[in-house]
């Protein structure tokens, strides 16, 4: 029997949600910024490493929102797992990290949430070390939609926690 899971990407404007999905699903990247309006839905069938289980990820690419409380609740109903994305180059996109994550946890307790700092290709390892205090506690992975670094890993890790 086919197993499908709804995965939602959430985060501020322009942090790279759509780019990450495009990298994951089509393995492409573009510098052009096309704002997502409403929601875009894509899917990918994957096989979870180790267990070899097949699962279809139905990925909801939400429009960016600088205030998480403005996210349409109905888009989040029935979600199985979240990927929270912020932009390593823009402190504004991670200054409310704790608040945003609590917001999700309160409404969707027990759901897996992967927190990722994206656009890793634009910052140095030193920068991450310097900001260890802020990131260490929350961030699961640093990714780059441009180079593809850690993109598969994020989705695979999330998928693994879903089945």
């Amino acid at each position: 029997m086919k197993l499908s899971k709804k995965v939602v990407l959430i985060g501020h404007f322009g942090v790279g949600k759509s780019s990450l999905i495009r990298r994951f699903v089509e393995n492409t990247f573009t510098e052009d910024y096309k704002v997502t309006i409403g929601v875009h839905i894509l899917k990918k069938d994957i096989q979870i490493p180790e267990t070899n289980k097949d699962v279809t990820l139905v990925i909801w690419d939400l429009e960016g929102n600088d205030d998480i409380t403005n996210t349409r609740p109905s888009y989040l109903i029935g979600t199985h797992g979240f990927i929270y994305v912020f932009d390593l180059t823009r402190p504004n996109t991670y200054k409310n990290l704790e608040f945003d994550l609590n917001y999700i946890k309160e409404r969707y307790p027990n759901l897996p949430v992967k927190v990722i700092g994206n656009k890793k290709d634009l910052v140095t390892n030193e920068f991450i070390k310097e900001n260890k205090e802020i990131f260490k506690q929350y961030v699961d992975l640093y990714t780059s939609a441009k180079t593809g670094k850690n993109v598969e890993e994020v989705f695979n890790q999330l998928a693994k926690s879903l089945v």
Binding site: S4, K6, G38, V39, I41, L42, K43, T56, V58, W60, R72, S74, Y75, I77
Partner: peptide, 15 residues
């Protein structure tokens, strides 16, 4: 493609 169509329908409906 049933998965994406169903997803889109649900999103439109929710919206």
């Amino acid at each position: 493609d049933q998965d994406t169509v169903a997803g889109m329908l649900t999103a439109i409906k929710s919206f």
